[in-house]
């Protein structure tokens, strides 16, 4: 099991009271799932992803990610968990503008004690997965949005994580590019059994998902597994 939440509640202070963004979430996510959190704006998708990614902590209840209890992790332990085991893909790509494509992908490995040649092999492999080996030296501002998001995928995948978290990865992309990156991620999911969790309200994304968890007002209102044909 990759992710398990138990009576997960997240409240945010709003003025003098609290706003409950997640209200008693109980979900299981297994290895190799290609899963989406779907729901209207403000339903708590990002909040849940942040807790699973150990960027945030539950207010009550708990989440276990890759066997770790999120609420009990120290700052250092959660940093290690993110660095080694979780890949992040953001709506706005979040590439480092001053680094080349290659350096952006290499970044997570710099934090690990990997040798230069190990890093090189891994980075080139990751760029190959997303089809960008020829853009290795380019700066993010010199490539298209679709290519940026593919770099972000390479950056998330380069450390071969068990889990990839993608918050609205296609929101800024057109149809063709969205299709391309989803196709890429789906392939990696099949080949490497990497678990993907998306937050989305994009129809195009939903077509690719194996499982959809519907959220509304911080609650799970539906959880359906879809039998998709292998693409």
């Amino acid at each position: 099991m990759i992710v398990e939440t138990k009576h997960l509640i997240k409240k945010f202070p709003v003025g003098k009271s609290f706003f409950t963004a997640l209200n008693d979430i109980n979900i299981h996510i297994d290895k190799g799932e290609f899963l989406g959190l779907v729901g209207p704006s403000g339903s708590g998708k990002t909040t849940l992803l942040n807790i699973i990614g150990s960027l945030d902590v539950p207010t009550e209840g708990n989440a276990h990610v890759l066997g770790k209890s999120i609420k009990d992790l120290s700052a250092k332990e959660s940093a290690i968990l993110r660095n080694r085991h979780i890949g992040f893909i953001f709506q706005t790509y979040n590439l480092f503008p001053v680094y080349s494509v290659y350096e952006n992908v290499e970044f997570a490995l710099l934090l690990q004690k990997k040798t230069a040649s190990e890093r090189k092999t891994a980075v080139m492999q990751a760029l190959e997965w997303v089809g960008l080996t020829d853009k290795a030296k380019a700066r993010p501002n010199a490539i298209s949005g679709g290519e940026c998001q593919r770099v972000a995928i390479a950056r998330a995948m380069v450390k071969n994580p068990e889990l990839v978290i993608a918050d609205e990865p296609t929101a800024n992309l057109d149809k063709a590019n969205s299709f391309h990156i989803l196709d890429t991620m789906k392939k990696l999911n099949k080949e490497l059994s990497t678990t993907f969790i998306f937050a989305t309200h994009d129809e195009k994304v939903m077509k690719f998902l194996d499982r959809i968890i519907y959220l509304e007002d911080g609650k799970v209102i539906n959880d359906e597994t879809i039998k998709t044909e292998s693409l």
Partner: peptide, 15 residues
């Protein structure tokens, strides 16, 4: 954004 991304990629805030 860069700071947030550093943290997501596995740095502690102190780092």
């Amino acid at each position: 954004k860069e700071i947030g991304t550093y943290i997501a990629l596995g740095m502690t805030r102190q780092r």
